[in-house]
């Protein structure tokens, strides 16, 4: 039987909503018993959210001032300390999960599987490689714990109608002081979160300035959509890094994705493969974005986007 531990991602206040998707991934393993570990300074609120997720049988809460800001080198030995008895330990393909899980794997002397997109059997998984240009089926050895991250865009969130028991656990692990949190600059926005939004309006290099990105914001606000961007737009400073979508940015799966002035490089497309409907607006009819678009419109964004924004009620 599979006994799976999921490492909670959070901001110190609330559970990262994508954990519900990692639970869905774990629940797709037959007969899985699923537990969630919350490492935080104060765990009560986060653990309660974790305990509400369907299929979760237990939440382990590890309170420590050292867990105030999640630092991979500090959390990894604590994960190892509670790792006994689990057949699988999962994290998210988030900044924290990607930072943490390989460190945990190496401490346990095993390899790690990145970005699980489907579970074929308890030890066989599919994952994207080459910026999503290929899908690789991998098989992990059955005599070792499986350490993996979950590509959350591949899963629908588990429900939250549960009340699993929460156990506060003390861990006697030696925690390093060689890595120290200094600060977090997080953009504050009233707009929907890029990773969970049902609609996303995204702008590319063609926007040509920070001011012109207002066209993207105006359309997004009309649609109640989140805003995204290409690497080119971020590199040019039109918008902050957390809005980048793609191989090295966020992987998203909205119902509607509107790509504006975006050429459709493979590194960008890998971030939107799971979108329900892709709309492309580009003045170049040959742009590769049209090969993946469900609805394409060739033309100048500077006239089309304002007209579209006006046309929407």
């Amino acid at each position: 039987m599979s006994k799976i531990l999921i490492i909670a991602d959070h901001d110190g206040v609330a559970l990262n909503g994508a954990i519900a998707k990692a639970v869905a991934c774990a629940a797709s393993i037959d007969g899985a018993q699923i537990e969630i570990a919350v490492f935080a300074e104060s765990t009560a609120a986060i653990a309660a959210e974790a305990a509400a997720l369907d299929s979760v049988t237990r939440v382990i809460a590890i309170e420590n001032i050292a867990n105030k800001h999640l630092i991979a080198a500090v959390v990894a030995p604590q994960v190892v300390a509670i790792s006994d008895g689990y057949s699988h330990i999962f994290g998210l393909s988030s900044s924290f999960g990607k930072d943490l899980m390989p460190r945990v794997a190496a401490l346990l002397g095993v390899n790690q599987i990145s970005d699980i997109m489907t579970v074929e059997s308890p030890h066989v998984f599919k994952r994207p490689i080459y910026a999503g240009n290929a899908v690789l089926t991998v098989e992990a050895p059955t005599d070792q714990v499986v350490i993996a991250t979950v590509r959350t865009a591949s899963y629908r969130a588990a429900g939250a109608n549960n009340s699993a028991p929460i156990e506060v656990v003390d861990i006697a692990a030696d925690l390093p002081s060689h890595t120290r949190f200094v600060e977090l600059q997080a953009g504050s926005s009233d707009r929907p979160d890029l990773q969970s939004a049902s609609s996303v309006v995204s702008g590319g290099r063609a926007l040509a300035s920070t001011e012109n990105f207002d066209l993207i914001y105006a359309l997004a606000d009309k649609l109640g959509a989140a805003v995204g961007a290409t690497r080119a737009a971020v590199d040019a400073g039109y918008i902050a890094n957390e809005f980048q979508i793609g191989q090295t940015g966020k992987i998203i799966a909205p119902d509607l994705y509107i790509a504006i002035g975006i050429s459709g490089a493979i590194q960008h497309l890998t971030g939107i493969k799971d979108a329900g409907t892709i709309v492309a607006i580009n003045k170049d009819a040959e742009a590769p974005i049209f090969e993946v678009a469900d609805i394409g419109l060739v033309g100048d964004l500077f006239s089309i986007v304002p007209e579209l924004t006006d046309a929407l009620a």
Binding site: S95, F96, T179, L184, Q185, E242
Partner: peptide, 14 residues
């Protein structure tokens, strides 16, 4: 300074 999901995180390492 690290690029993270919510923005930019600064850490100090020995």
């Amino acid at each position: 300074i690290r690029e993270v999901d919510v923005g930019l995180e600064t850490i100090e390492v020995d």
